[in-house]
């Protein structure tokens, strides 16, 4: 029984989110909205943590993959889902759900492909170059989207509107749970010990037979995939998206969560995602001070406590020993 603990926890979380989703009408819409934001940020932060934290490859372009996912999923929904409905057994909640899942997967896969395309050449380079390449990729994606035609599928600088609001509590937290499960299982397995090995010492890792490039690309592609999923969820929650919403300040936001939570600590990053998202919501009136506080926090943290605000929980990161 014990060996399936993690799978059972995953299942419980998914069922729980389904339950809450069904009852969502009973909750205050404002708090529900904050909860959904929390969930989306958990997906973003946990997936970025795989790249930046566990594998030590500093990406500053997570918002770009989110954008690819958001556009991919939205366009699929807007263009395809009406045509798919009859094939899925006509309009109805089941068909809508399947079509939405397909849209999310399309978005996620588009993002993963982009992650592979960007990662293959740039992950051969030293760490700080990757930061700039991903930042540059973030800008390229924004510029391309902004220069598309206003009446084309991408909607130009104003972006897309009228995306159906399909994102529910269930979708967000089921995917968040899967994301945490995937990243956690990957990293804690023997295979996954290659990720921190690459982070700690790439040369030693190579000398131990670890294919460093493959590990980096894997982390990058999986991270991009989940960023893409979160983008799809975000688009179907907000119902409008624009290129400006995925600029590199958005990427910085995710980076801040990962750093404050502690790079490489999944639990820390989840807590940071919750705290910072809620905090953001309540500090909305002090928007201009918010970034000021975050930036000071970032600097002070790096000097005083670079491992993140939480103490590390070795239990959560290590597989139980025999």
């Amino acid at each position: 029984m014990k060996r399936y603990t993690t799978q059972i926890v995953l299942l419980v979380v998914v069922l729980l989110s389904l339950g809450i989703s069904v009852l969502s009408g009973k909750f205050d819409a404002y708090y529900m909205d904050i909860a959904l934001n929390v969930g989306i940020n958990i997906i973003l932060a946990v997936s970025l943590n795989l790249v930046n934290g566990h594998t030590g490859q500093f990406s500053l372009g997570h918002a770009a993959f989110m954008a690819v996912g958001a556009y991919g999923a939205s366009i699929f929904t807007l263009e395809m889902s009406a045509r798919l409905m009859p094939l899925l057994g006509g309009p109805g909640s089941f068909a809508t759900g399947v079509a939405f899942l397909l849209a999310l997967l399309v978005g996620g896969l588009c993002a993963a492909v982009c992650g592979w395309l960007v990662g293959m050449p740039s992950l051969r380079l030293r760490g700080d170059y990757l930061a700039i390449v991903t930042l540059g990729f973030n800008e390229i994606v924004r510029v391309i989207l902004q220069n598309t035609s206003g009446d084309g599928v991408f909607g130009g600088p104003l972006g897309l509107k009228g995306i159906p609001p399909l994102t529910t509590f269930f979708w967000v937290f089921a995917i968040a749970a899967i994301c945490v499960y995937v990243v956690g299982s990957m990293v804690s397995s023997t295979y996954g010990r290659g990720f921190p090995a690459v982070r700690d010492d790439e040369i030693a890792a190579g000398s131990m037979g670890i294919n460093t490039v493959r590990y980096k690309v894997t982390a990058f592609v999986v991270g991009s995939f989940f960023a893409g999923l979160s983008g799809g969820l975000y688009a179907h929650l907000r119902t409008t998206i624009s290129p400006e919403g995925f600029n590199f300040l958005k990427s910085f936001d995710v980076v801040v969560i990962v750093i404050l939570g502690g790079m490489g600590s999944t639990a820390g990053v989840i807590i940071a995602a919750i705290v910072l998202t809620v905090l953001n919501e309540f500090l909305r009136d002090f928007e201009q001070y918010r970034m000021l506080v975050f930036s000071i926090l970032l600097i002070v943290m790096m000097i005083v406590r670079p491992q993140g605000l939480l103490p590390s929980f070795p239990i959560l990161n290590r597989k139980k020993s025999a």
Partner: peptide
């Protein structure tokens, strides 16, 4: 050049 953040076993 050990993997400094990992345990001895890891």
């Amino acid at each position: 050049r050990l993997f400094s953040s990992l345990s001895v076993l890891d």
